[in-house]
């Protein structure tokens, strides 16, 4: 196989990896935000992404709404959905010392949504076909599919938007403060419910963007969500929890690993390799790869 290897091919693999990885990255940012204030891994994140991909699919097939135009509907829907998830499902459990309850709710939600999706949309893969689905740019002989490029752009823009929100707004600061020390946050007047709901809203808001990215790029089915959540979790472990850019970089790194592994070994190996990397990183750098040693304490 190696005789086919050329510089152009390597570049292509790297580009594929980056384009793949950004979707994992924004899913991981959502996980990171929710983990920050709630101290749980929101395992239903991937399934929610797929659910929102189906919403995008429905808007497209039933009403002819262009997937990118549907952003203006899907993003507000997902922000509300996030806040709704918190208030309806997690509000009581979040106050408990034992975080396992919240984690179980997330798992329950994941299976519920997964099964609902199977009932509504069947287990057959769906995909969105538009005029630009197979559009590919070829700068310097490297293939860059249009939909993946847009997904990359959406990911970078939304990550920057979230970062700006966390830095510049008072409620964003409150989310960061609560992620660091919830008791201290309540002592300055921050309501845990408020910051938890905001973290959820933004986390699921990002899931909406990822959902549109997925819907325009891959065929998807209901069970794909769980795998997606695992990939986001690996990205989070690579990037370090509580670090927006780290999560995005972790996703891109995972995309690169998968892209290279599936070329040099085989598609089947790529998942095994990613889970192995997940474990190795957790064993040797549990704080993540992109967290400076200074922040360890």
């Amino acid at each position: 196989m190696l005789e086919y290897l050329s510089f152009g091919l390597i570049i292509q693999l790297l580009v594929n990896g980056i384009l793949f990885g950004t979707m994992y990255g924004i899913a991981a940012i959502g996980l990171s935000l929710i983990f920050g204030t709630m101290r749980i891994i929101f395992l239903a994140q991937g399934t929610t992404i797929i659910f929102l991909a189906y919403i995008c699919y429905w808007l497209f097939t039933l009403f002819g709404v262009d997937p990118y135009l549907s952003l203006i509907l899907v993003v507000p829907i997902s922000l509300l959905l996030g806040a709704g998830f918190y208030h309806a499902l997690f509000k009581e459990a979040a106050a408990l010392e034992d975080k396992n309850i919240s984690l179980l709710i997330a798992v329950g939600l994941m299976f519920l949504v997964e099964n609902l999706m199977t009932v509504i949309w069947t287990a057959n893969p769906r995909s969105i076909l538009t005029t630009y689905t197979s559009l590919v740019f070829r700068p310097m002989g490297i293939n860059i599919p249009f939909t993946r490029l847009i997904a990359l752009l959406m990911a970078v823009l939304s990550a920057s938007g979230v970062l700006l929100f966390l830095k510049k707004t008072l409620i964003g600061m409150a989310v960061r403060a609560a992620s660091e020390d919830m008791v201290s946050a309540t002592l300055v007047g921050i309501s845990p419910h408020r910051v938890n709901a905001v973290a959820f809203a933004i986390g699921i808001g990002l899931a909406g963007i990822a959902g549109i990215g997925v819907a325009t790029i891959y065929p998807f089915d209901p069970v794909y969500g769980f795998i997606f959540a695992l990939k986001a979790l690996i990205s989070l472990a690579l990037g370090g929890i509580g670090n927006v850019y780290g999560a995005l970089l972790g996703g891109i790194l995972l995309g690169l690993i998968e892209s290279l592994a599936s070329f040099f070994l085989s598609g089947g190996w790529s998942d095994a390799i990613s889970y192995a990397v997940f474990l190795i990183v957790l064993m040797f750098r549990p704080e993540g790869l992109f967290v400076r040693a200074m922040l360890k304490t």
Binding site: M173, R176, A177, E180, D181, V183, S184, A185, L187, L295
Partner: peptide, 8 residues
Amino acid sequence: GRRLFSKL
């Protein structure tokens, strides 16, 4: 122990 938001 003060409990500042040390990363802020």
